[in-house]
Every structure is written in structure tokens, then in C-alpha cells.
């Protein structure tokens, strides 16, 4: 299977959040499908963590130029997925087609992924002791369908396809907006955004000037995450050096006696 990607187009989005609603419905349908309660039960339970794509409301800027900003929070499906690298229980799997899947039944609730994620995506539910995040409806993808949120989007602001198709569409849209709006547009995630994450399988098209307001950091660095990766590399190198020194001194010592 070739690599797949999602596209979120900030300009086309009409802020109806049908994607978020549909995501919650789809995940409840999955619970019913997996025999974890009948339809009434799974719909009656309040499970906010089952909406893997959801709006976060905040205000950007300061008075008098302040404006409400709605960030659409969802998993970015990073190329290098720091969460998958850190998960001690191997509950996070990176599919060969690029989707990062958190298997709920393997999760031990240690929250290492929360620490690892530069986008604050994984959502921990203390009641179940499990962490939840978007898996891009990998079951639907494998069955040849689009993810649920894409199906729900009435403005075609969400677009799903192979990576090539999605990047082509993203650049086409960005170019079109630039031409008509006279503003610079960026395709966020098409290229590497940080050392820890690599490129993203969920790319975002938006006006370059506002990307940061929507919590899309052009260099998605987060000091501690990059520093932890660095210390883990340097640490093993130093351990190798110390082991080499020990072996060297041991060989040097062979056959030698202490002189009085």
C-alpha cells in the first residue's frame, strides 16, 4: 500500500465541526462493533476522548487587535512519530502507509506519548487508564474507504488520498488562494517540520501569517523532546567509549604485576 495523507484546508473550512461529530459517532460505532456495549450504551456514555479531531477555542493577539482563533486539534501522523518511538508497551504502531495507530488494548496508560508529542495530541482518560488519539480510521482505509471526518466534511476542507495526490491538491489550493487573495499560503507538513517528527502525514494549507496562531509551529521543535533524543544518542556513544576504555585497560593489564 502506498503512503496516504490527509489534507486540512483552513481557508475552505466553514467551522461547522461536522468532522468532530462524525469522529465521535464513528468511534462509538466501533465500540458497538467490538461488542463493548449496544448502541444505546455507547451513545449514552460521555466519552469526549473519542473525538479524535476537535476544536480548541482561544484568543490570539492583544486588545484592540485580538481575535478568536479556533485551532483544529488532531494527530499529525508524523513520519518519525516520537510517540511510537517512546511507547514502552509497543502500543503505538506506525503502519507501512504512514498512519500512526494507538492500539487501545495494548496501552498501559503510562503517558510517555503525552510527553513525546510536540503537538499535545494524545488524550489520557484517567477512568480507563488509557490514552486515545486519532488513528486516521485505518480500519476504513484498509477497507478502501475514506476516514470518517473526510466523509462528513461538507466544504471539502478535509481531503484524503495517497501522499502524491494530497500534496498535489495542497499545492494547487495554496497557489489558487495566493492568486485570488494576494496573501502567502503555506502547506504545513509537506516538508520536515522538526528533527523529532520529520514530515507529517496530515498536511495543512493556511495563510502563512496565521499558522502560528493556529498552533502550527513552523519548526515544531519542543526543546525537551529534541534534547531527550540527543541525550539518548550521546549517552549510548559515551557508554561505548567507556566500555572500550575498560576493554583496552583490561588487555593492557594482562600479564602485568604490581611493582612494589
Amino acid at each position: 500500500m502506498t503512503r496516504v495523507s490527509m489534507l486540512y484546508d483552513m481557508q475552505a473550512c466553514v467551522r461547522c465541526f461536522a468532522c468532530s461529530v462524525q469522529c465521535g459517532i464513528e468511534n462509538r460505532a466501533r465500540l458497538a462493533r467490538d461488542g463493548r456495549g449496544n448502541t444505546e450504551k455507547v451513545l449514552a456514555d460521555r466519552r469526549p476522548e473519542l473525538r479524535y479531531i476537535f476544536p480548541i477555542l482561544r484568543v490570539g493577539g492583544t486588545f484592540p487587535t485580538a481575535m478568536p482563533v479556533t485551532e483544529l486539534r488532531h494527530c499529525m501522523h508524523c513520519e518519525n512519530a516520537p510517540c511510537a518511538r517512546r511507547c514502552p508497551a509497543a502500543a503505538i504502531e506506525v503502519k507501512p502507509y504512514g498512519v500512526v495507530v494507538l492500539h487501545e488494548e495494548k496501552c498501559i496508560g503510562c503517558r510517555a506519548c503525552l510527553e513525546a508529542c510536540p503537538f499535545d495530541v494524545p488524550n489520557f482518560n484517567a477512568k480507563f487508564g488509557k490514552t486515545y488519539k486519532c488513528f486516521m480510521c485505518y480500519d476504513r482505509i484498509e477497507a478502501g474507504l475514506s476516514p470518517a471526518c473526510v466523509e462528513a466534511c461538507l466544504a471539502k476542507a478535509l481531503y484524503f488520498g495517497t501522499r502524491e495526490e494530497v500534496l498535489e491538491e495542497a499545492y494547487r489550493r495554496a497557489e489558487n488562494y495566493e492568486k485570488h487573495l494576494g496573501e502567502k499560503f503555506q502547506v504545513y507538513g509537506a516538508e520536515k517540520v522538526s528533527d523529532a517528527t520529520g514530515y507529517l502525514h496530515w498536511v495543512t494549507v493556511g495563510p502563512a501569517a496565521y499558522l502560528e496562531d493556529y498552533a502550527l509551529r513552523p519548526g515544531a521543535e519542543r526543546g525537551q523532546i529534541e534534547a531527550l533524543d540527543a541525550v539518548r544518542t550521546i549517552g549510548w556513544v559515551l557508554f561505548g567509549a567507556s566500555a572500550a576504555g575498560i576493554i583496552g585497560h583490561f588487555l593492557y593489564s594482562l600479564g602485568k604485576e604490581e611493582q612494589e
Partner: peptide
């Protein structure tokens, strides 16, 4: 806060690697 966990994890790792380097020498 998660940001505090991240720093704590970083320094916990730094400490681990310090021990990983010095303890084999100490034992040897």
C-alpha cells in the same frame, strides 16, 4: 504539568546515562 514531566524525563535520562557510563568503570 506535561512540560514539567518532559524536563523531569530529560534529567532522569541524563542521570541514567551518567550512571551507565560511570558504573561499568567503577565495577571494573
Amino acid at each position: 504539568e506535561p512540560n514539567t514531566w518532559r524536563w523531569a524525563r530529560f534529567f532522569h535520562d541524563v542521570g541514567f546515562f551518567i550512571f551507565l557510563v560511570i558504573l561499568p568503570i567503577h565495577i571494573y
